[in-house]
């Protein structure tokens, strides 16, 4: 930094010279693009005719750097993926930074660099932003809010209302990696594991999938907070169909399974940040799976279950030994601050 200071001071959020220096030297330097460069109060974006999708999310993960990612990558992926599962091509993001006084500048720089890399990967731009600094203790290091705009153009998912018995439920890869990676990175647990977060931007994978089976995708969701179990319950709740999943077909890495067993956590409810749950009509399942598997982010894609008539509105898991149990919406907070 040109001012030579190596941690965030309250003055960095004061709107004066230090704020300008931070915006110019760090944010503008990293995210440079024509919409952001004028540093006006609002960015101007050209959109083609049609609809846009618009979403926002705040990211408060602790620790801010975890195996397989950091807060910056997460803040871009989270919003990009929310757009992507709607079938929207992400075009522009906003980034709001809430910084704690004393935050080491190198940490902020590495988070910003990671946001930039992830944006480049997706082809999305950060076109507007904001920075606030709060006194030490007012928050934990750094929180980021991102909002995103995506363009909706066919082919799109046909929507939850079109889901019917017989449809297949696919997932793009092993579940719960993100939540368990963050949890095992927390100092207080002192677990040495090799689990890495799955945090990744999904647009490229989803774009390929929609193109391959343009009329086959009914519904998509990224199983973040609450995990796969919660996402399925959200789909089934109040509907005239149910969901049946096969325990043996729900993909978890052995390390994830082992750690969740030790901690008494059900990995069905643990967050992913780079996986997508897809409901496809049965005739498209094979091609959809093949398409996902040919993409680096979907190599381990698999079919985990299907839409059934009974019991309507509920999610049933068929266990390895042939028993069944109901998968309920989880209660309370299993794992705080994982995203």
């Amino acid at each position: 930094m040109s001012d030579g200071r190596r941690e965030i001071l309250l003055a960095h959020g004061g709107g004066g010279r230090m704020t300008h220096a931070l915006v110019r030297d760090l944010f503008l330097h990293a995210f440079d693009n024509p919409a952001l460069a004028p540093l006006e109060d609002a960015a101007r974006i050209d959109v083609t005719s049609g609809s846009i999708a618009f979403t926002t999310d705040s990211f408060v993960v602790s620790p801010v750097v975890f195996p397989g990612g950091d807060l910056g990558k997460l803040a871009v992926c989270g919003t990009v993926n929310d757009l992507a599962v709607c079938g929207a091509r992400p075009i522009a993001l906003s980034a709001g930074f809430l910084l704690e006084e004393g935050l080491p500048m190198p940490l902020l720089e590495s988070i910003v660099a990671s946001m930039r890399r992830t944006c480049e990967e997706v082809g999305v731009k950060i076109v507007t932003g904001d920075t606030k600094v709060v006194e030490r203790g007012g928050l934990d290091q750094i929180f980021i809010n991102t909002a995103g705009i995506g363009v909706l153009a066919p082919p799109l998912p046909s929507g939850a209302a079109t889901v019917r018995p017989g449809d297949c439920i696919l997932v793009s890869g092993p579940l719960a990696d993100h939540g368990m990676a963050v949890l095992s990175a927390r100092n207080e647990l002192r677990f040495d594991t090799t689990i890495e977060s799955d945090c990744a931007p999904l647009w490229d994978l989803i774009c390929a999938l929609l193109a391959a089976v343009p009329n086959g995708v009914r519904w998509m969701r990224d199983p973040t907070r609450g995990g796969f179990g919660t996402v399925l319950n959200e789909l089934a709740a109040g509907r005239d169909f149910g969901i049946e999943i096969e325990e043996a077909a729900v993909p978890f890495r052995p390390e994830v399974r082992a750690l969740s067993e030790i901690l008494g956590i059900d990995p069905l409810y643990v967050a992913c940040e780079g996986r997508v749950v897809v409901v496809v009509e049965p005739g498209s399942a094979e091609l959809a799976l093949a398409t996902m598997r040919s993409h680096p982010l979907g190599r381990e894609a698999t079919q985990t279950g299907r839409i059934v008539c009974d019991p309507a509105g509920r999610v049933v898991l068929r266990t390895r030994i042939g028993g069944t149990r109901i998968v309920e919406v989880p209660s309370g907070e299993q794992l705080p601050r994982i995203c």
Partner: peptide
């Protein structure tokens, strides 16, 4: 007993 679906068996 619940988790493995043993009760129903």
């Amino acid at each position: 007993f619940f988790r493995f679906g043993v009760r129903g068996l």
